[in-house]
């Protein structure tokens, strides 16, 4: 056919290579950006302020309940053991007086301090911490709403993860595992017989004063840090543990 006349000028593999590179780079670089969106935590939480500042222990908030289940995020009630705001209604009324209506009490967060009723409750010293604490009290404690934290290690409802079953696993044990185990290698560096939280959770979170954004997969809603099944299975296999479906699923 007529159009079939060969065009010699680009006879080489250039367009091919170009196509390959453009798409490959886009696929590796742009795709993850599109796939994941950053979501800010409800407010900034400083582990440092609590651990170093107040000398709290991890177990004060993240402990095993009597039934063996693990209390992940502390509830308002637990936070209120220190952050005691008394009668929430009184605080709401005091805030409403400033903002004019109980419906928009969160507007007080636009100002850096005040009213007195709120300032009086603040326990933090650092300006950043103060703002975070103000947000916590006004948005959640005062209104009786639990904090909707994003869980970096979020697992879907069909997964039953037992913290209890993994509680006695030490970093040293993991570090000693044979085989190409990413986490194990990372763990090896600071292997000690302490807690193994770093194995899955944000590394050394107790030393952080910020709460990095939660990276959410737009399609699945998973966190970028959500451990996939093959990772669970690999470690189970290395530890000679069962990989039967009902060990983890519900």
């Amino acid at each position: 056919m007529e159009e079939m006349r060969a065009s010699k000028q680009y006879g080489g593999a250039l367009p091919f290579l170009l196509g390959f590179l453009v798409v490959a780079v886009a696929g590796w670089v742009l795709f993850p950006d599109i796939l994941f969106v950053d979501k800010e935590q409800p407010f900034r939480f400083s582990h440092v302020a609590h651990v170093e500042g107040q000398g709290m222990l991890c177990e004060d908030c993240h402990y095993f309940r009597e039934d063996g289940s693990f209390a992940g995020f502390p509830t308002n009630e637990e936070c209120a053991m220190c952050h005691d705001i008394g009668d929430p209604q009184e605080l709401v009324d005091a805030l409403a007086e400033v903002t004019g209506s109980p419906d928009n009490i969160e507007d007080v967060l636009k100002q850096e301090e005040g009213p007195e009723a709120l300032d009086y409750l603040i326990l933090s010293a650092e300006p950043e911490d103060i703002q975070a604490e103000r947000a916590f009290i006004v948005k959640y404690l005062a209104q009786g709403k639990e904090v909707p934290w994003y869980n970096y290690q979020f697992q879907p409802d069909n997964v039953f993860f037992s913290h209890k079953a993994h509680a006695d696993l030490t970093m040293a044990q993991v570090a000693a595992l044979e085989g190409g185990h990413g986490e194990a290698e990372a763990a090896e560096a600071d292997a000690e017989d302490g807690t193994n939280c770093n194995l899955c959770h944000l590394e050394d979170i107790h030393l952080r004063s910020d709460t990095p954004p939660f990276q959410e997969n737009v399609m699945t809603g998973y966190s970028k840090m959500t451990m996939k099944m093959w990772q669970c299975e690999r470690c189970h296999a290395q530890m000679h543990q069962s990989n039967a479906c009902y060990v983890c699923h519900k």
């Binding site: 680009y10 593999a13 250039l14 367009p15 091919f16 290579l17 170009l18 196509g19 390959f20 590179l21 453009v22 798409v23 490959a24 886009a26 696929g27 590796w28 795709f31 993850p32 796939l35 879907p156 069909n158 997969n217 399609m219 699945t220 809603g221 998973y222």
Partner: peptide, 29 residues
């Protein structure tokens, strides 16, 4: 040629595979 290259390039990126996987995860949630 560009398209063929692009297609092959696509195959070596996670786009198709990750999408396929995420679609199935999407159906689970």
């Amino acid at each position: 040629q560009f398209s063929v290259g692009g297609t092959l390039g696509l195959l070596v990126t996670p786009v198709i595979w990750k999408t396929l996987d995420d679609v199935s995860i999407w159906t689970q949630n």
